[in-house]
Design a protein around this nucleic acid. Structure first.
Lengths: 100, 100
DNA sequence: CAAATATATCTATAATTCTCGATATATAAA
DNA sequence: TTTATATATCGAGAATTATAGATATATTTG
């Protein structure tokens, strides 16, 4: 972890919707409906579910998630036409350790 | 810790200077000259020293520090005409626990 | 291959944040 | 009580971020 990445993570965490996404992804089963195709949450939650829950436009949420992945807060996995997002616990730990 | 305060902390941590102040204040003795009047760092570091180290204007740093105190990242203590700032480890822990 | 679906990117305007100089306030020193 | 010093607040223009609609790309399905 370095200062630049840490502040990029800070930017992602400076917005309530983005912070909430991090919270929601702690418990996908509790916060999202089951995936019809993918029968599990091993790789996280698809963009559409996150977008619907957040109530913002598709492009806005897509931008959020892309940036959150770029700074390492999220891990993105493609399965066919869907992108699934999950928390990157390793980076999260590096960030909190850096601050503490 | 709640979502609103957490995102306010995120805003403070979204800027390299502000994040660095948090880092500098981990080790005042190492990062700042000794205080002439106050002989210790028990209450942290005075605004002027932080301002000089950061290299930004007095008003900018004062605003930074005020906001960092408002969201609980820093604790401010007045001694005469000086304000001393130190990290608020309790809030920092609450924030990192909230994210994890 | 055409149509449908999911996601990503582009572009532009609105909103917010950055940063400073000017000024105000509080305290100490002369 | 005037002057000096440290910090806080105000006001404004510059810079950045927010957000959406339009469009592009990728993948699946018929």
């Amino acid at each position: 972890m370095n200062l630049k990445i840490a502040t990029e993570i800070g930017k992602c965490l400076s917005n309530q919707t983005r912070f909430q996404i991090m919270e929601w992804l702690k418990e996908p089963e509790k916060n999202f409906p089951p995936h019809e195709t993918l029968k599990h949450f091993n790789d996280g939650v698809c963009v559409t579910y996150i977008q619907e829950k957040a109530g913002l436009s598709q492009s806005t949420i897509s931008t959020y998630l892309t940036n959150m992945e770029k700074c390492g807060l999220l891990i993105s996995t493609r399965h066919g036409k869907w992108s699934y997002l999950k928390r990157n616990e390793e980076t999260i730990k590096q960030f909190t350790d850096f601050l503490k």
